[in-house]
Computed example of a mutant assay.
Amino acid sequence: MAGDPYAALGVPRGASADDIKKAYRRIAKTDHPDLNQDPEAVKRFAAASAAYDLLKDPEQRRRFDAGEIDAQGQQQAPRWAGRSGAGRSAGGGHPFGGGAGHGGDPDLSDVFADLFGQGGPGGAAGGGRRGGFGGFGGFGGFGGGRADMRGQDLRLALEVDFLTAARGGRTRITLPQGGTLEVAIPRGVREGQVIRLRGKGEPGMGRGEPGDAYLEVRVTAHPMFTREGDDIHLVLPIALDEAVLGGKVAVPTIDGPVSLSIPRGASSGQRLRLRGRGVKGGDQHVELRIAMPPKVDAELEAFFEEWRRRNAYDPRRGMVDPG
């Protein structure tokens, strides 16, 4: 029941000192604020700490059982002189009396060794975790230290232009907590890929490490290139005479222009391949598209009228009446 130290530890009134210690150990492993930030867990741990402070001392426990002191360690009647340390601590303490945590009890150093390292938090040797039991802040009345807690991770969207994603490079971002950071973009990074920046998240508490920043890549579209896996696709306009006569033309790639041979009599939709010109060893596929001259003059018109008279052909043969 509320205010009962035995109930706070979950043990009967006849429990042995060892049972009381084990009960406190069990609660500390699940509800210690360095391990569980839930407000209800914090309350359970505070009550268990105060209960243990009251019951760990045989004389103080005897007096409580006899009704000489109450659950707060206060004398029930003025005729009892009271035992030094049996009442509330000068700083307000816990409702069951005694100091915060395990009150420096050397017998409890092993209780927290498996939770916080050898000697427990705030151990007498000075090598324990700062902000552990009896020394963490933010939980009123537990002491003046600070909890060691890892900072939260950040998840951010990172917009990268197409060529930087394909070739790799560097970009600068502004962090939510202020300041800028230069980020290395690996060659061939893909849409939706996540880049992890260790230690660039929210700062930790106490000696806690900062969190990480996770950047989810968003690749902007390119006016000429598209990407499928590690292959690059490009539609290449060619002139009418280049389609008829063939020849070499300059073709853009993600790493700069290269020369491409157009075969004689090339057609729109014909695909050519540039090996190794894609992303990380992929290929670049070039789709040819014949582009008419901006103006059909009288000379070109007369030439094709004569050519058609002599060499007419039907590229749509069989399409109109496939049966």
Rank of each mutant, 00 (worst) to 15 (best):
R275V: 13
R207C: 12
L154R: 05
G128W: 01
L54M: 06
Q75D: 08
E59K: 15
D255Y: 13
W307S: 12
H102T: 04
V189I: 15
A90T: 06
L245M: 15
E191D: 14
S267C: 08
D255F: 11
P293T: 13
M149S: 08
G127L: 11
G211V: 08
G192Q: 07
Q75F: 06
E216G: 14
L181Q: 13
G265R: 01
G137T: 09
R79D: 12
Q270H: 10
A165K: 02
G3L: 09
F303T: 07
P257E: 12
E299T: 05
K22R: 07
D19K: 11
M149K: 06
L163E: 03
W80Y: 15
L108D: 05
S49F: 00
G128M: 05
Q74I: 12
A100I: 01
G276V: 09
F64A: 12
D148T: 12
S84M: 15
H102Q: 01
G67V: 11
Q284I: 09
V296D: 01
F112T: 04
G99Q: 04
R167Y: 01
G14D: 14
G73A: 05
V189F: 09
G145N: 03
E228K: 15
E59V: 15
V235W: 02
R88S: 14
D107W: 01
D212W: 02
K295F: 10
Q284F: 03
G188M: 12
F116I: 00
D19M: 11
E191M: 10
G135N: 10
D70V: 04
R146W: 07
L35Q: 03
G14L: 06
A165S: 12
E299L: 11
F225E: 12
A17N: 04
A81N: 13
G91D: 14
F112I: 03
T164V: 11
D18G: 09
G117R: 00
K280E: 15
F112N: 02
G67Q: 03
K22A: 14
P5D: 13
S109M: 10
G204N: 07
K248P: 03
R198Y: 05
D18M: 09
Q193S: 15
A48G: 00
A71E: 03
G145R: 01
A50L: 01
R271Q: 09
K21H: 07
L54E: 02
G134R: 00
L274P: 08
R309V: 09
R44M: 08
G3P: 00
L175V: 04
D19L: 11
P315C: 08
P106D: 05
R170M: 11
L272N: 04
L181E: 14
P106K: 04
A15G: 04
F112H: 04
E182N: 14
A47D: 02
L215W: 09
H285Y: 09
G247Q: 13
V111M: 06
G85W: 04
G120I: 03
Q284G: 06
T164K: 01
L108H: 00
E242G: 09
I232G: 09
I238Q: 06
R273K: 12
E301D: 10
N36I: 13
E59W: 13
P106A: 10
R273H: 02
D148W: 01
L154V: 10
L236Q: 07
D18V: 13
R63N: 12
F142L: 14
P39T: 10
R155N: 15
A48V: 00
N311I: 03
